[in-house]
């Protein structure tokens, strides 16, 4: 279950490229190709194996000048989808 304290990292077989307004992602294990919207693509940039979901929300809220509750809902939703699609995984607790 993803929460605000969860830390995510990109899986090593994932490559992506921003094609505004979208992001194209290849997960080599399939291979599987996905198209992410701009915010999900930016979220992928910020996932670094260190920053918590709360930190990602704060960064995106500042970047997009959007209400925190809206960003929080979107980020939790995107993060859950990326986790289910095996694009990211939960980082080991530090």
């Amino acid at each position: 279950m993803i929460g605000l304290d969860t830390v995510l990292r990109r899986r090593p077989d994932v490559r992506y490229r921003h094609i505004p307004p979208e992001t194209v992602l290849i997960r080599q294990a399939g291979p599987e190709v996905m198209v992410l919207n701009g915010i999900a693509g930016r979220l992928l940039d910020l996932v670094d194996g260190h920053t918590s979901i709360a930190g990602l929300i704060a960064a995106l809220a500042a970047e997009y000048d959007a209400p925190r509750e809206t960003v929080e809902r979107d980020v939790l939703e995107f993060a859950a989808e990326l986790l289910a699609a095996e694009v990211v995984s939960e980082a080991e607790p530090r």
Binding site: R17, I19, P21, E22, T23, V24, P31, V33, M34, V35
Partner: peptide, 11 residues
């Protein structure tokens, strides 16, 4: 759309 096109070709 460009993103969808690149995804389709990458596959």
């Amino acid at each position: 759309a460009p993103g969808a096109a690149i995804a389709a070709l990458a596959a």
